[in-house]
Design a protein around this nucleic acid. Structure first.
Length: 150
DNA sequence: GCCAACGTTGGC
DNA sequence: GCCAACGTTGGC
């Protein structure tokens, strides 16, 4: 079982939205490196939910992966902001996962705390200028994060 | 295949 | 709202 970190702007989709919905198709990722991480996820993997573009940014909870290699339907929807007219219908570019709600942490693990605890090599989210929205988290780092959250 | 222009992300 | 970082696009 692997650990991941996935970002979302809470104004767009938050941990509270996921708690309400129970599961959600994680659509709209349009970056190849992030897509490759999504397609390498397996059932039962756990993912930290990170709120970006908010005050304070940080890890707010935990999700699990309940469905893998799901076609992202928004790539074929001209009305969607994630529409990708260059994605071939017979060889779609964008696959993702369905996530399930696991828990909301009692306190946000803020970006400041993350920077104080982990090096940029240990946790990519503290890398300067990092824009990747899906990234792996090493087991040891994940266990430390769970300890900080509880 | 290079690289300038452009668009987006995301912290501050 | 600003702007640094950086991925993508498109002209050549």
């Amino acid at each position: 079982m692997a650990y991941w970190l996935m970002k979302s702007e809470p104004d767009v989709y938050s941990i509270d939205d996921l708690e309400r919905d129970a599961t959600e198709l994680w659509d709209g990722v349009r970056n190849y490196q992030a897509r490759n991480f999504l397609t390498s996820m397996t059932l039962g993997d756990l993912a930290f939910f990170y709120h970006s573009n908010t005050k304070p940014p940080g890890i707010v909870g935990l999700m699990n992966i309940v469905e893998t290699n799901v076609l992202d339907p928004t790539q074929f929807d001209p009305a969607s902001k994630y529409y990708d007219p260059k994605s071939p219908k017979d060889n779609p570019r964008w696959y993702t996962v369905t996530v399930g709600y696991v828990e909301t942490f009692n306190t946000v693990i803020t970006l400041d705390q993350l920077k104080a605890t982990f090096t940029p090599d240990e946790l990519w989210v503290v890398r300067r200028g990092n824009r990747l929205s899906v990234m792996p988290v090493e087991d040891g780092v994940a266990e430390k994060l769970l300890g900080m959250a509880r």
